[in-house]
Write a protein that binds this DNA or RNA. Sequence first.
DNA 1: TGCCCGATTAACT
DNA 2: GTTAATCGGGCAA
Length: 204
Amino acid sequence: MPGLRRWAVQQRLTRSFFGRSVHEVAPDLIGATLLFDGVGGVLVEVEAYHHTDPAAHSFRGRTERNAIMFGPPGYAYVYRSYGIHWCLNFVCEAAGSAAAVLIRALEPTAGLSTMRRRRGVTEARLLCSGPGRLCEALRVTRAHNGLALDAPPFELFARPGEVDVVVGPRIGITKAADKPWRYGLNGSRFLSKPFPAAATVINR
DNA sequence: TGCCCGATTAACT
DNA sequence: GTTAATCGGGCAA
């Protein structure tokens, strides 16, 4: 029956979803829906980090700031970036792996007027295209560091079907800059930056 | 304690 | 293309 699918219940992402390799979870988050207090949209760009990765906050061991990364999967790790912005991560793998996915961009679908007010811009493309912008639009701060991802104010829903995921090098880092651990929704206009023209596309 | 630098962004030239 | 804003972590002294 045409249109039936729109009534299908979207599956919520649970802790077990995050208890896998960060390099599996990251591409599987592309196309998923993130809501924070009812405001959010479809994830279109993420990056993977791991404690063996020189670019990761957890690379030099546990500190007060990154402690959440060393805990169990399925929790939010929020940190201050450049003393100005907040950045949101999802902790993955097993406790001690200190692996997390940085949430870099989403396509806004819920709470657009709220996001516009918080961000001070009207263009939808500028609301959540970048980790700092996204946290400002969703009003994610240090107060949410350590919160479970399967309970309010978070709501996470699995993507409804397969998507084309584009894979490329991460942005804004100097260490391990060659690692292709940035994942995006192929063709999305809500990416924080385009992927290289030669970037690989995979179906997930 | 002091210094350097960063998983960024917006406003410049 | 370049740069200021702004501050905590990490490391040298």
